[in-house]
C-alpha cells in the first residue's frame, strides 16, 4: 500500500466529500422538503398501466440523469482526470451505475420501502410495467441494506469513489495507477470510519456491497438485452444516447 500522510488523507477526504456534495443531485434538505410524499394508488396504477417500452424509456432517462451527476463526481476526484482517457471511460462504463445504486440510499425511505422517483416516493409496485420484478426487488433490498449502515455523507462519498476507482475492471491500460488511487481512497475511507468511531465490521460490510453491486449491474445488462431483443427500434430511437453508450 502507498504511504500517505495524515494530512494527505484529510485532504483527500475533504476533496471527495466536497465533490460528492456538489454532484449528489439532491441535497438532504431538498429531500426533506419533498416531505417523503408517496404516490397515491391511482398514480401507482397509472405507472403500472404504461406500456412496457414507455416505462423502460422513462427509467432509462432517470438513470441517465443520475449518471451525468456521477460523471461530474468522477471528474472532481483527485487523480481521476490524470488517468488516461481509456481508463476514465472504462471506469465510468463499469462503475457509474454502481455509484447510482450506492447513492440511492440517500433517496430511499426504509420504513416505507420507497425511493424518490419522478417527483414522489415510489414502492417497487410502481415499476411493475418494466417486467423485471426480481431485479427491482433486489435493487430495493440493496438500498435498504445500504441504509441500515447509516453512512454519513463523508463515508458515502468515499465509498462511492472507492467503487468508481475499482482497479480490477477489465480493459484498464494503467491498472497500477488506478490501484494506487483506489488504495489511497480506501485508506481515506478507513481514516474517516475510525474518526467517526464506527465499529470494525463496517468496512467488511462495505466490501460485501461491492460484489452485490456487480451482480445488480450485470442483471441490469441482462434485462436490457432481453428488452432490446424485443424492442430494438425503441432502444435505438428513444433511449438516451449516453445510456446506449454505457450499456449498449
Amino acid at each position: 500500500p502507498p504511504t500517505v500522510s495524515m494530512a494527505e488523507l484529510d485532504h483527500l477526504v475533504q476533496i471527495i466529500s466536497k465533490s460528492h456534495l456538489e454532484t449528489c443531485q439532491y441535497l438532504r434538505e431538498e429531500l426533506q422538503q419533498m416531505s417523503w410524499q408517496n404516490f397515491l394508488q391511482d398514480e401507482v396504477e397509472r405507472y403500472q398501466s404504461k406500456p412496457r417500452e414507455v416505462m423502460w424509456q422513462l427509467c432509462a432517462v432517470k438513470i441517465t440523469e443520475a449518471i451525468q451527476y456521477v460523471v461530474e463526481f468522477a471528474k472532481r476526484i483527485d487523480g481521476f482526470m490524470d488517468l488516461c482517457q481509456n481508463d476514465q471511460i472504462v471506469l465510468l462504463k463499469a462503475g457509474s451505475l454502481e455509484v447510482v445504486f450506492v447513492r440511492m440510499c440517500r433517496v430511499f425511505d426504509s420504513q416505507n420501502n420507497t425511493v424518490y422517483f419522478d417527483g414522489k416516493f415510489a414502492g417497487p409496485d410502481v415499476f411493475k410495467a418494466l417486467g423485471c420484478d426480481d431485479l427491482i426487488t433486489s435493487v430495493f433490498d440493496f438500498a435498504k441494506s445500504m441504509c441500515s449502515l447509516h453512512l454519513t455523507e463523508d463515508e458515502l462519498a468515499l465509498f462511492s469513489a472507492f467503487v468508481l476507482l475499482s482497479a480490477d475492471r477489465s480493459w484498464l491500460q494503467e491498472k497500477l495507477q488506478v490501484e494506487k488511487l483506489q488504495q489511497k481512497i480506501q485508506l481515506a475511507l478507513q481514516h474517516v470510519l475510525q474518526k467517526n468511531q464506527r465499529e470494525d465490521g463496517v468496512l467488511n460490510k462495505l466490501r460485501c456491497k461491492v460484489s452485490a453491486l456487480r451482480s445488480l449491474c450485470s442483471r441490469h445488462t441482462e434485462k436490457l438485452s432481453a428488452f432490446r431483443a424485443i424492442y430494438p427500434d425503441i432502444v435505438r430511437t428513444h433511449f438516451p444516447p449516453l445510456y446506449k453508450e454505457l450499456f449498449g
Binding site: E72, K75, R76, I89, E245
Partner: peptide
C-alpha cells in the same frame, strides 16, 4: 473514441 462520443464530451467539458 467514436463509440463513446458523449462520455468523451462530458469528460472534456470543464467542471462547472
Amino acid at each position: 473514441k467514436e463509440k463513446h462520443k458523449i462520455l468523451h464530451q462530458l469528460l472534456q467539458n470543464s467542471t462547472s
